[in-house]
């Protein structure tokens, strides 16, 4: 499933990286704890689903080679975050849904969990 299809499922909007909307999402990891995200070795096609929306969540994606991020609860993504995300060719999608609801929709759509 592409990130664009996922965005549609969760009634999301592209905050940045819309030109990469055809990227495939292979698996999803949901966490607000960045140290936990940093433990994941294989991040190919990984979508980070998170309610933590700050510079460090983008930095964590940068270090972990994660290029797909879905932010829940309509959190504000600052210009500084967008700039850093764009430097790393990242896609950020935002949904108004909660973490629980978003995770449920994605799991129900058949996207595998990482653990």
């Amino acid at each position: 499933m592409t990130i664009e299809e996922i965005s549609t499922l969760v009634q999301g909007e592209f905050v940045c990286g819309e030109s990469f909307k055809n990227r495939e999402v292979a698996r999803v990891f949901a966490s607000d704890l960045m140290s936990d995200v940093l433990t994941i070795r294989d991040t190919e096609g990984l979508l980070l689903l998170t309610g933590l929306c700050n510079l460090q969540s983008i930095r964590t994606c940068e270090m972990s080679d994660i290029q797909l991020m879905l932010v829940v609860r309509g959190k504000v993504v600052t210009d500084e975050m967008i700039e850093l995300a764009e430097d790393n060719d990242m896609v950020i999608v935002r949904t108004a849904f909660s973490l629980y609801k978003t995770a449920g929709i994605l799991y129900g759509a058949g996207i595998p969990a990482i653990y």
Partner: peptide
């Protein structure tokens, strides 16, 4: 609040 401090560093 920054997403760290869980004793995993």
């Amino acid at each position: 609040e920054m997403g760290f401090g869980a004793g995993m560093g």
